[in-house]
């Protein structure tokens, strides 16, 4: 499972990096999205990988080693919300830029040949 997860994170982040280096705004935002997915998975993995373990115990005095770490789960939730909001904001900007400049190049103008 560790291998699957790390390959998934690596491939997504790599694809994201490639995409944000491209000149079109759509490629840029897709790259940002892929990278944020990869980062969210990565945060998750930092709580170590657990299968079918509850994060919170109803009764005290149990062995905490049998429970998944709840903190990264909380972190990833916050990160998803914030990432979603900022990406949506950027999407609005991209649409605005498209309308104002008539180009979907990230510089707001087509490169001069």
């Amino acid at each position: 499972m560790e291998l699957t997860l790390s390959i998934a994170v690596g491939v997504m982040f790599g694809a994201g990096v490639w995409l944000i280096l491209r000149p079109r705004t759509f490629q840029l935002i897709t790259g940002l999205l892929l990278m944020s997915y990869a980062v969210n998975l990565f945060i998750f993995a930092m709580g170590r990988l657990w299968v079918a373990q509850p994060p919170i115990t109803p009764t005290p005095a149990v062995d905490p080693a049998l429970f998944a770490d709840p903190v990264p789960q909380g972190l990833v939730l916050t990160a998803i919300v914030i990432g979603f909001a900022t990406t949506a904001l950027y999407l609005v900007m991209i649409i605005g830029a498209r309308g104002l400049t008539g180009s979907d190049h990230v510089d707001g103008e087509e490169p001069r040949e």
């Binding site: 940002l32 980062v39 990565f42 990264p72 972190l75 900007m93 991209i94 400049t101 510089d107 707001g108």
Partner: peptide, 24 residues
């Protein structure tokens, strides 16, 4: 708009780096 596009994109990537650093 032209300046803002770059500013936002750079800072979004920096925020992702922030998250990676914090989780590590």
């Amino acid at each position: 708009i032209q300046a803002g596009m770059q500013y936002v994109a750079v800072n979004l990537v920096a925020s992702l780096l922030f998250l990676i650093g914090v989780s590590l």
